[in-house]
Amino acid sequence: MWVIVEEVRKSIRILLAYPAEVIFWVFSPLLWVIPLVFQGKALVGAFSSTQFGNLAGTDDFIPYVLIGAIISTYMFSAVWSMGNSFRDETYYGTLEHILSSPARPAYILIGKGLYNSILSTSFVIVQLLICVFIFGLEITLIKILPIFMFLLLLIVGLYGIGFMAAALTLLVKEAHGLLHMFEYILFLFSPIRYPVEVNPITKTISVFIPLTYALIALRGLLLNIEFNFLKNSVILFGIDCVLIPLGLIVFHYVEKRTKTRGTLSDY
């Protein structure tokens, strides 16, 4: 467990050594949100639309999109950070020293994922404050616990995907393009920015994407849209049970393959 704590601590220390990165993390939530607001207003002419409500279950376009943006922040930061983490270690020249230690790579990756979840959470808190104070989103204390439960169910599953993303980077070294493609596919087929009901194909495919269930649940809780609490939590839990062992198996397989081929520290 100490490995995980020290991994988080190390990553934060390295981040703090780059002041420009810290400035990014302080201001970017705000800069990220404002264009979405203007985009919504330009398209719909207001912050709400009956046409939109028929598909999404809520007339309020802006909070709908902002919640999608918030959840996808977790999704992409987990996949990106865990995916690129070992590439960063190769750049530092420390990868082989980490992997020749008795610490299990999964713990190191969880530490890297946790560090990123902490950053994402600070990002998301700023975004939520914008939602609450500017767009009147209501978050009552009674909603906090289920919100955290769904976020936790989402994050655990994301770590499984993160293990696979890390494996992919070990294998192909430069995985930026593939991770971007993964990101765009999710934007297309899950209800991050728009209700997938707008098109029968996106609606069908969205059923197979875990992010969909987290988005339905969290929007349901935050925007008072009716949803099946039990069904969505059971599906997310089931997905976690598959993704975590699958991610570990894939990572273990790829680590062994790179050690056999001698490409572990290739950049």
């Binding site: 100490w2 490995v3 020293h97």
Partner: peptide, 9 residues
């Protein structure tokens, strides 16, 4: 050193 100490338990 603290980080590597953690890695080596």
């Amino acid at each position: 050193l603290r980080y590597f100490a953690a890695l080596y338990g």
